[in-house]
Design a protein around this nucleic acid. Structure first.
Length: 134
DNA sequence: GTTCTCACA
DNA sequence: TGTGAGTA
């Protein structure tokens, strides 16, 4: 199977479900550095992988900078244990942050329950009044 | 279709 | 962390 060596911005955008605008934005941030053919950008398979990893990082709550930091640690010559340890540390941070967010949301839900309960109690003590439809 | 820049949330 | 408009 002859592998195609380059991709256009629209091909990658379609593949990853983002807009070309987003990929240009990543380039502006230094996440990818596609070659040029005249004005057009030509993305290599390596560029494609970087974008895929960036988007994967985004899904687990990593910032673009965090993803770049991890990706740029990759060293084909070695076992990358340093990179992997760093990624584990980042993942643990993210996990802690999301766990805190879950607690915050639960607190908010409890407050909503309380307010709703008070409102419903107040309604029981007052005569029913006609309500406008909604 | 793609590029660039500027403004905007 | 992106989007949209206007341009060439």
């Amino acid at each position: 199977m002859a592998e195609r060596k380059t991709y256009t911005i629209s091909e990658l955008a379609k593949e990853f479900g983002v807009t070309p605008r987003t990929i240009r934005f990543y380039e502006e941030k230094g996440l990818v550095t596609p070659a040029r053919q005249g004005q057009k950008r030509l993305y290599t398979p390596a560029d494609r992988v970087r974008i895929k990893l960036i988007l994967r990082g985004k899904r687990i709550g990593m910032t673009l900078d965090e993803s770049v930091e991890v990706i740029d640690m990759y060293d084909p010559e070695h076992n990358n244990s340093e990179q992997l340890h760093s990624l584990i540390a980042t993942v643990k941070e993210k996990r802690a942050r999301f766990e805190q967010q879950i607690r915050d949301i639960n607190d908010i839900m409890a407050s909503l329950d309380e307010v709703q309960g008070l409102c419903e109690q107040a309604l029981k003590k007052t005569p029913a009044t006609p309500t406008k439809h909604n």
